[in-house]
Every structure is written in structure tokens, then in C-alpha cells.
Design a protein around this nucleic acid. Sequence first.
DNA 1: TCATGATGTACGGCCACAGAAATTA
DNA 2: GTTAATTTCTGTGGCCGTACATCAT
Length: 374
Amino acid sequence: MLKVSSGEDGYLNNWIHTCDSCQAAACTLYCHTDSAYLCHGCDKHIHGDNTTALSHHRVWICDACEAAPAAVTCSADAASLCIECDIQVHSVNPLASRHTRVPIPPISGQICSSSSVQQDGQLPGTMFDTKNEIAALTMELNLEINEDEMDSWLLLEPGNTDNQTMSGFTYGEQLDEYVDVVDTCTESFGPEQSSDQQQLVCVNCPEDSGSDSVVPVQTLRTKNQPLQEETQLQKQQLHSTYFNSEQSGSKTAFTNYPSSSLRVPMLMITPAGIPNSYTGFPATTTTTTEILPNPWLLMPLQFTSMNREEKVLRYREKRKSRKFEKKIRYASRKAYAETRPRIKGKFARKTDKGIEDDQMFSKEDNGYGVVPSL
DNA sequence: TCATGATGTACGGCCACAGAAATTA
DNA sequence: GTTAATTTCTGTGGCCGTACATCAT
């Protein structure tokens, strides 16, 4: 069922689904097994009754189009997006392409409330109870990765060591590791490939490879290859990475959490739009737990309901006030650049007359010619 | 409704060079 | 370990070309 909805900012004027069950509330997820769009309440009612229903393959709905199943969550946009919207949104400009997106694991089991009770002996980290929680996690990762944005995006409480250390691992250590992986990944492909943000490196485990290892497959764009074809290829690869791998029983790296049937794809979309396969690990790795020693994905997510809401709220506030204006770091360079001779906008060599003028200027205004740096 | 052309908008690259940062003696 | 000299790297603004979006026909 479809109905027209106008977004509050006029941006999302798309068709959205209402719940196929109650036909009143807006749907929040899609059940592949039932082929039905459901709201949270109906999902709880339908899938929470028996174990068979609990195993239904359900996915979140894209926040942008509100129609397609969400595949990734973007921290910067605080949104869960389907593959198409992800590509569409994050290919508009370099800034957007640098957003860190994390694949959304399929919903399995009953959706816990945000104040889900931690069970004895089980990792609370398995409780990706809402997509907002995943977004919050991704957001925090993004904060650490991009130091420039830290000031405006920082959600962690300064001085609160509890926020900085989880399960014995500090964010800094974890993310240094993450950054290293990205760098390695980028370097290994050479400048030509790494400069192309549209290229993808997907985690694929070709069935004909006969190996369980995670092998990054690089898709190179030929000069004559149409962009549309490439985009289509990206969609296929992303889709195969996010969904087909599970459905077809292929061996894309997933982590099976012991306390639930939740399976989290062991890849991450880098700021450059490249799903991070955590290359560098032994190609003979056979178990998913060995593939990803990075502890932060396995670390507990002990966000209380208040903490999470507060973090998300603060994040959204920061996002509103985010500014992309160019920040001048050296006023002296700006001053020189403004006075520098140009030819069609390009800096030109100083003419003899210009040099003489500079000398005269320095004599007359001795001591005032240099603009102090900020 | 779709195709085509005109127009508007956004963005990256280019350039020289002062000064910061790193390296060497 | 300290200092000076040298080398390397970074950042700066305006114009242009290209890609993309929008609108009219």
C-alpha cells in the first residue's frame, strides 16, 4: 500500500509504505518472507509470537525513499539508506562520498527495545536493537576517524573514560588500526585507482575459488565504460555483498554472534566509498571470527536508552550547525595569494615591476608587511 | 510522455610562492 | 645534544573547463 507523504523539509516527497498489517502506521521494516511492509508494533506482534516467525528475513526501510530495504547506515546523514539511495546520495559530491557507511545487518529475532536487558554471559554487543544504534555507533566511529570534524561532531563526553574505553580497547587504538587498513587498501591499488572514489572494492568469495578466504575484488572502470554501466555494476556488487551472500549461502564474511542469530557483515564502507574488507589478514582464513580481529565491532554496545537518545540528539544538533565554509589556516598565505599576480586566475610569476613594488612597499611599511599567521 | 537543446550551477584542477616542517651537516 | 643550512611540503585565490541539473520547446 502506498500513500503520498511530504517530508517536513520538503526534501522527501516520496511515496512511502504504510504498514500492510494495521494499514495505519508508517512501516519501518520489510519482511521478505511475508513480502509485507510492517510497522514496529505489527512486527512485534507477528514475529514475536513464535520461533518460526522470528526467523523471517526482515530488513529496515530506507530513510530516503522509504520504500526499498535499507542496506547501509550513514553516520553523517543519520540515515539508513537502500543501495540506490546510498549511491545517489553519496555520489553527489566528494564530501558526501566520504561519509562512513556501515552495512545494516538483517533483522533477526525479535526487535529489542532500546533498554534491552543484557542476558547473563552474553555479549551485549550483539544487541543492535535499533538501526539508530547502529547509526550512533557508525557516527562515533566517524568522529574518531575524521579528526577535523571531531570538534563539531564529538559526542563523547570529554574526560569520560567510560566512553573512550570499551571492553579494554580504546577507540584510538581501534581506529588507528582501522585507518591503517584503509591506507593499506588505498595504497595497494595505486594512485590511479585510489583517486577514483567511484570505484568499489567488494568483499566477494567466488564460489569457484574453492576457498573460504575473503578476497577483495577490485572493479576497474575502463575508459569507454559508460558511467551508467558502472553504477549498475556497483549496485549489483553492493547487493551481492549485502544480501545475496546470506541468501545464497555464499561465504561472504559474516559474524555469527553467539547470543543471537544476528549476523553482521564483516566489511565496512570506507569514507572513499570502498567497502573495507580488512585486507591484510591471511587469505587462508576460514572462520569469520578470525577474519576480523578488530575488537570494536565485537565490543559491547552498552548504550543505555538515555545515552543513545542523547548522543543522537546531540549529533543531529551538531549536524545542523555544521559548516562547510573554507577555513583559512594561514592568513599570511591568504594575503599573499590575494596580492599575487594572476593570469586567467592562475598564479603567475612576479614581474620585475612587481618585485620592485614589493621592495618599495617593504621599505615604506617596514615591519607591517607580514600578516601574522593564525 | 519523451527527446532535445539552452541555460544555470557546482566543483576540481591549475598556477607561483611564502612559510612551515623535515632533513642533513 | 644543539644549531644552522638545506630541502621538501603545504596552503592560498581566481579563472576555466567539465559534468550535471533544470527548464523550455
